[in-house]
Design a protein around this nucleic acid. Sequence first.
DNA 1: TTTATTCATTGACGTTCGTCGATATACAGA
DNA 2: TCTGTATATCGACGAACGTCAATGAATAAA
Lengths: 127, 127
Amino acid sequence: MTAIDLPLVTRETAAVALGSAPDAACCGPLTRETISPADAETFARRLKALADPVRLRLVSIVAASEGHEACVCDLTEPVGLSQPTVSHHLKILTEAGFLSRSKRGTWAYYRLVPGALEAVAAPLVSV
Amino acid sequence: MTAIDLPLVTRETAAVALGSAPDAACCGPLTRETISPADAETFARRLKALADPVRLRLVSIVAASEGHEACVCDLTEPVGLSQPTVSHHLKILTEAGFLSRSKRGTWAYYRLVPGALEAVAAPLVSV
DNA sequence: TTTATTCATTGACGTTCGTCGATATACAGA
DNA sequence: TCTGTATATCGACGAACGTCAATGAATAAA
């Protein structure tokens, strides 16, 4: 990338050599809008709720369960963690909008929120 | 858990009352395969690399840059963080396979790895 | 009411994460 | 060579995270 016929190789002069404006620098101007800090914050919060091996397994088990729902007592054993820990993860997934909770009797049933996973995947493919 | 056909209301007897098989319980059997612990671990690691507002902005800026590449010096200002911190985030994104690094002169140019974001989004829509 | 069961919450602990300043490394120009 | 610039690495700090035992809240049967 060294400069053509110029003594000092700066990113500015290199950009000039490439035909861009002097203040275009190495990376040039942005060709489109970038994500706003606020949007990045909310999107990261949603991704972070999924970015845990235990929570991914919980989502997978709920999705694969008959009727697409599962209660805590059936999730704690396949995951191999204590009941409070499983409830903690389920709360995170629920607050992030991936699971919904409905209590029937003494049991709490969690089920997938339709379209929630697709909604978090969509921005990734359109980057 | 308690036995079947006992006066105590267990999830088994509740399932019977609902017309399901006795061992169907509340969540019933799994209707398909669930993610393996190992796959959940690697997938969570990839998601975790993206689950940060700063790293999402870095990816967005690189993707929107002319030529689809950007060097560290141009990324540190719009993000508003120190250069070591930006380099740290870029390393995480690179090790996760989302960015590639090519050094030309004293500058390090980062660009998006084609298909990397789509690859991490695909498993989400197919759950 | 008493007992038993399911689940959520609390408090604590060790680990990981995000950030910075300081320093090291690599490269280009003089 | 020496100087300046761009980037990576190191060490440290506070914050956030994952986990558990203990406890609390709610429900149902006896």
